[in-house]
Amino acid sequence: MTMTQTLEISNRADARPKGAIRTVLGMLWRDKFALAAAIFLLIIIACAVFGPMLFGDAALSQNLRSRNLPPFSIKNGWLYTMGADSLGRPLLPRVVVAARNTILIAAGAVLCSSVVGALLGLVAGYSSPRVSNVVMRLADVIMSFPSLLLAVIVLYMLSPSVGNLIIVLAITRIPVYLRTTRAEVLEIRQRMFVEAAQVMGASSRRIVFRHILPMVIPTLVTIATLDFAFVMLAESSLSFLGIGIQPPEITWGLMVSQGKQYLATAWWLAFWPGLAIILTTMSLNLLSNWMRIVLDPAQRWRLEIGGKSNG
């Protein structure tokens, strides 16, 4: 039943071997949510790259006459369409400029923690029980330490720069990836295709990277996108304690925490950066969902045939 169905589809897929990029774009086109997410993320990246260059000055120019100016008025120029903050700085350019620091810190921390966590997880899952135990206890130590406390200690000793912030946030998030990876590896290494590779004489490195890692990656990507939002907010609480990013540098997280006290009177102060965080995380999530399907040969047909998918 499913046989005939999949064969038909694969025949169609076989019939047109197109360029890889075109195929991927075609699959993106078929999932409209993922497409919207990808476009949004491109805009955010553009903001991060060009924002400070274009609006760097506007974001910092204070104008006490327009303190807490409500949004949706173009009286003071289009820069003020999102309103202004407690020092009269226009919010629109501030959100745009803050994208750079936010994305840099969040992406850096998530990337570092997921790569290191995944590698340690692969080691813990595939090597001898002794090595595995050492790695796992290490993760326990990190986990048992309150992450904020760790950050305070480290950043107290080092200067609170973007680089150090990335390292601190990355370290506190490593156990999440480590534990997930290890658990998956323990299950996958028992599967028969791993044994089949052993019989062929495959080295441990080949088995881990060619057979096990591709099965773990979809899970890791999903966790990473969720972690993105967590890191953005964690960074803001560090800023709040005075050891994260310091004004006049700005991040979305910092803007949210600064706007929190005005929530009753001027909601837009926290709302716009908050919206940016939510939309970014949601876009990443939608895109990772799409990617999970693309990476799985057994699921890919859903995006190849178009139309409604009955998932």
Partner: peptide, 23 residues
């Protein structure tokens, strides 16, 4: 030495669904 011999002795498993990497 075993690595060299691996190619001389091969195995076919019970369930091909599981013995072939789906990806």
């Amino acid at each position: 030495e075993l690595f060299g011999l691996r190619r001389q002795i091969q195995m076919v498993f019970q369930d091909p669904t599981q013995s072939l990497n789906p990806r």
